[in-house]
Write a protein that binds this DNA or RNA. Structure first.
Lengths: 161, 161
DNA sequence: TGAATTGGTACTCGAACGGTGCTATATATT
DNA sequence: AATATATAGCACCGTTCGAGTACCAATTCA
């Protein structure tokens, strides 16, 4: 199954939660409880999101996290990169840290490296299209606007299909 | 690192190889040698591609594989599905076989399931855009342009297609 | 018959994911 | 100042899964 790790799911849940709470500082425990995710795990994830600059932390009693960026500036690409590491579907396309594949040994040029790079770029562009704002609002819409969230103005979402 | 398994790389190399050889039947050994991939591994991969209907096999001495479909009908999506299993970035979006995530416990609606499905659909569409023909030809083109490796003039993958 | 080649499955090894625990640090409350 | 709360960072462990190996059956060519 081609899938991300569960941590990305958790990260997005946390971000959606923070978004809905506006500027309120939410503790890891609170967020974990809301989705029944093990607390220490969500802690780890929030730490990563913090290091990546997407959320800001407040230490000490009554501390916690809040978004450090506008929800419309937090893209799926940022989240996945922060949690899963560099995005690049093919190992052929690996440039950083890893060798450019030991296969293609007898080939003058790796027949996949170029297409692989193109696919990766398209994927990146796709993931950058999705913003936290957009994703969170889409669900709010489905829920029928039971309205405990800030409901930011000017949402005109670009619905693809 | 968000990446596919190496088997997808191998599968694509094999398919590109078969495409370039037109209708010739190529043994797993031959293909494996061309890219210095361990033979038994490529065997496994070709078996899967065969089961998925992308290549046709001929058993016995001088047997091997050839494409079973037109190169323009073999999409990246098909290859990845056959090798990696169902495509779907988020575990939230899992429908088949797996539970729809045990998180979101206290939420009326999983805040990610709907966006997750949308992302998966866009990803699928993206992967379906890329065909074997397109990817293989792109490389052939590059090999001609960057003059690094003088192209053997008639590489234009044998008629057949 | 014998060699070559695919079909299928079962297995081992190592790395990564999922999850836990501990200690240090910072802040609000008392 | 003392205490409770909460993040920061790291080290650790068990299970799963990917990567690769091995084996045997079935099929075809010479």
């Amino acid at each position: 199954m081609m899938t991300l790790t569960r941590k990305s799911d958790y990260a997005l849940l946390a971000l959606v939660h923070l978004y809905r709470e506006g500027n309120r500082v939410c503790s890891a425990r609170e967020i974990a409880d809301a989705y029944e995710v093990p607390v220490p795990i969500l802690m780890n994830i929030l730490k990563r999101l913090c290091r990546a600059g997407m959320v800001a932390s407040t230490r000490g009693a009554r501390g916690g996290y809040r978004l450090a960026l506008e929800a419309r500036d937090i893209t799926l690409y940022m989240v996945i990169s922060a949690i899963e590491g560099p995005v690049g579907l093919f190992q052929c396309a690996r440039r950083n840290g890893q060798v450019l594949a030991s296969n293609c040994g007898r080939q003058p040029v790796c027949p996949m490296s170029s297409p692989a790079r193109r696919v990766s770029e398209r994927l990146r562009a796709l993931l950058e299209e999705f913003t936290l704002e957009q994703m969170a609002d889409e669900v709010a819409e489905l829920r029928g606007n039971d309205g405990d969230e800030p409901e930011p103005a000017g949402v005109s979402r670009v619905s693809g299909s």
